[in-house]
Design a protein around this nucleic acid. Sequence first.
DNA 1: AAGCGGGCCGACCGCCCGTTCAATCCGACG
DNA 2: CGTCGGATTGAACGGGCGGTCGGCCCGCTT
Lengths: 220, 220
Amino acid sequence: MAVWKNTVPSKDELYESKRAALLREAAAAFNRRGFHATSLDEIAQNLGVTKAALYHYFPNKQTLLMACFEKAMDVAFDSLARARQQEATGRGRLRLTLALYLEQMLDELSACVVLMEENALTPPDHARMVQMRDRFEQALRDLVRDGIADGSIVACDPKLAMFTILGALNWIPKWFRHSGPWTATQTTAAVSDLFERMLSSAPAPALARDVGLMPLTTAK
Amino acid sequence: MAVWKNTVPSKDELYESKRAALLREAAAAFNRRGFHATSLDEIAQNLGVTKAALYHYFPNKQTLLMACFEKAMDVAFDSLARARQQEATGRGRLRLTLALYLEQMLDELSACVVLMEENALTPPDHARMVQMRDRFEQALRDLVRDGIADGSIVACDPKLAMFTILGALNWIPKWFRHSGPWTATQTTAAVSDLFERMLSSAPAPALARDVGLMPLTTAK
DNA sequence: AAGCGGGCCGACCGCCCGTTCAATCCGACG
DNA sequence: CGTCGGATTGAACGGGCGGTCGGCCCGCTT
């Protein structure tokens, strides 16, 4: 019996994996079509179940949205922590944070950037979400400030810079398709290059002319 | 009677100005809260009338959305034409196009960038909208190509560059507030500087440290 | 073999909101 | 002052969708 522990999914594992699949599907739909435009019937149908089945995993639609958001924020803060550890300059940390975040969003989560349509949440959830998002944005602005201080980033307004970069980032789910010509890794690298060039004190003299020709995996 | 023609609003002028006000209000609401999250009651209330009154100006909610979109595209192509006339290099044309578009979006129209939630339109309207949007995006990519060819823009992937820039642009209505610390003109200039730095073959060595300290009006 | 229980289904409820319509208001005009 | 017509209203309708509930199916246990 114990032999099978890691190969045959237990009841709980099955439950969790289904729940995760639901979360991914919901996140993808919310990002592509918007929260209000996505019906539970739609999500359920994509998963091959009935709407009522969803209620075994989430008490209501709002909670589903909140769960997407929290997972996204987990990824965000995790990316930030890893970048702080691996990179020394403000620019390096900023770039790595954004790249780790984006790549995970793109392939793990079908992008959970549901920072929009926040008004759909209950006031306490909304407050919690705004607070976490602001903390993340503040951390990113601080990276920009660090970069300006250590000379790796040009003089600029950190607030505007991050508004602009996060806008571009949040928009990516609208046009990125896994079935498209670019892989998640290629897209991440190319977008990071653009962001870096915008802020670097030593901007690259050239960028990739064709994202589809970039390396298919991250060089390690 | 004819004396008053240009001072006292005629019936038609009144009708048109009310219709325009409705369009502005709707555009602002759609951009801030999303199409599906915005109820007609809400728009009507902000205008001091009843929901039913709106139906004297638009046959239904979808048409309202489509009208917003078409106005935005008018501004877009107009900006493009003016930029082509005034600027010689690809970079100059791209920058001016984006700046004209953004500034008009910000103050005239409360930003009508409702390229999202497209699924809300009827198939014919949707097709029409996609076609116009694609034409505009193509024109912008061509400006990037021109810029690369004439040396004003670095080697890069025009498609990705415009996806990124338009993403950042489309996100601006989410955070820009007329009551905020930055004017539309300041914001436009600062954002344009960021975009330009991302793509220019001769990136500026420094940018404004504080958007709120930039000139309040465009220098002419 | 029988019983148990979790997972899922079909059907239904109720609300919200887009849409309609008859009735009313109000300014213009004769 | 009466009438006409467009603008606006209040009330109602109907569909869509989030959410609920009772029951069925099926695998596991004893």
